[in-house]
Amino acid sequence: MMADRVPPMRLGAIPDGLVERIGLLLGKVPTPIGEAMYSMPVARSLQVAQRTGILGALAEGPRDPAELAEHLGLQAKGTVRVLDVIATLGHVKQNPDGTYEMTASGRRWLDPRSDTYLGDFLADTYEYWDWYAGLEDLVRDGKHVELHEKAADDPYWQSYIRGQYQLARLSSAEVAKAIPLAKGAHSVLDVAGAHGEFSMALCRQHEGMRATIVDLPGSARVGEEIVAEAGMAERVRHLVGDMFQVDYDGHYDAALCFNIIHHLSPEQIRALFQRIRAVLRPGAPLCVLDLYDREGGQRANLASILGLFFHLTSGADTYTTDEVSRWMGESGYGSVEIKSLRTLPDLRLLVAKAV
């Protein structure tokens, strides 16, 4: 069953005024120049402003740029230039007295006091810069990054997992409502669940629900911190280890497999689905949330950029919903329902019950 699709997001030039709109429509605007030249300073300015504390300081109130630079140990001219770039995005603004402050829309995402704060994710994208420097190697030789092979004590895990947690908070309530649990269900297995936000959302919506998260040591260590900070440690536990090897320790009423299959080969995906099926009670749903490849004939969209990112950082690929549905069927599951989500318009949730 296919749910109504949410229109995909698109990336492109936005005209400022009638003349630019007409020029864009007539093909007179050299958009490749802007796409290649301006996307880099925009991304790096945001990343640097987050890492240096500029955004955190502006979240506290208006600041004189020279005083702000001195307070943070930065150079004044470079600080102003970065602030001006971010101002063009609407996240900060310059006041008539020369001070800069965070806008209301900027505070929604960049103020640490906001429930929708994404600062850790923004800081984590700083790592992407070096990865994309190897894009030509990927295209020419197939050389890719293995972002999950870092040592368990590498500081990267903090920004990576906390950033993913901040993203998950934006959609976890809707996702939890979309998961069909049988009456009396009380246990869920969350494979590669890391931060645990999706498991915690299920626990918040279902009294008596308990979750078991399986993930690698570096990821699980940060995830345990996040769960404890949320006051959910008594209901959400982590099993540390490789999802293909660790004992799942029990039988479950549902299983989550979110944002992981794009890092796996088809053979690995089937093996994972089969491992999960072995610990699911009959009728329990396997829920697979991911970005799926477009079907033949569909145009590329913003999700295609994520598809490239996944290929760059694992060497694997995105798959169509038909492919993954078939692998679920081959692994011991019934018919697959495909659900669209308002808060995750480029992703799909595939649900099939264990038979």
Rank of each mutant, 00 (worst) to 15 (best):
M1R: 07
M2F: 14
D4V: 15
V6M: 06
M9V: 06
R10F: 13
L11E: 03
P15G: 00
P32I: 08
I33G: 04
G34R: 00
M37K: 08
V42W: 11
R44D: 03
T52G: 00
G53V: 11
I54H: 04
A59C: 06
L68R: 03
L68A: 10
L68I: 00
L74K: 11
Q75L: 12
Q75E: 15
K77Y: 15
T79V: 02
V80G: 06
V80N: 10
V85A: 02
G90V: 03
P96K: 02
Y100T: 01
Y100S: 10
Y100G: 05
E101V: 05
M102W: 09
S105E: 15
S105P: 09
R108Y: 14
W109G: 10
W109K: 07
F121A: 12
L122H: 11
D130Y: 12
D130K: 13
Y132S: 02
G134N: 11
E136K: 07
R140I: 13
D141S: 15
H144T: 05
E146T: 13
E146K: 15
A152N: 01
D154Q: 01
D154W: 02
D154L: 02
W157M: 04
R162Y: 09
Q166F: 01
S171H: 13
A173T: 04
A178I: 02
L181V: 02
K183I: 02
S187E: 11
D190V: 04
A192H: 08
A194H: 05
G196P: 03
G196V: 03
S199E: 01
S199K: 05
A201F: 02
H206K: 05
I213V: 15
V214D: 01
L216C: 04
A220S: 01
R221A: 14
V222G: 03
G223C: 03
A228Y: 11
A230T: 07
A233G: 08
E234F: 12
R235A: 02
H238G: 02
F244R: 08
V246T: 13
Y248R: 10
Y248W: 07
H251A: 15
A255R: 00
A255M: 01
C257R: 01
N259W: 11
N259D: 15
E267F: 09
R270S: 13
L272V: 05
R277C: 01
A278K: 06
R281D: 10
S304W: 04
S304L: 11
L308M: 12
T321C: 12
T321I: 10
E323T: 15
W327M: 14
V336L: 08
K339T: 09
D346P: 01
A352N: 11
K353V: 07
A354E: 04
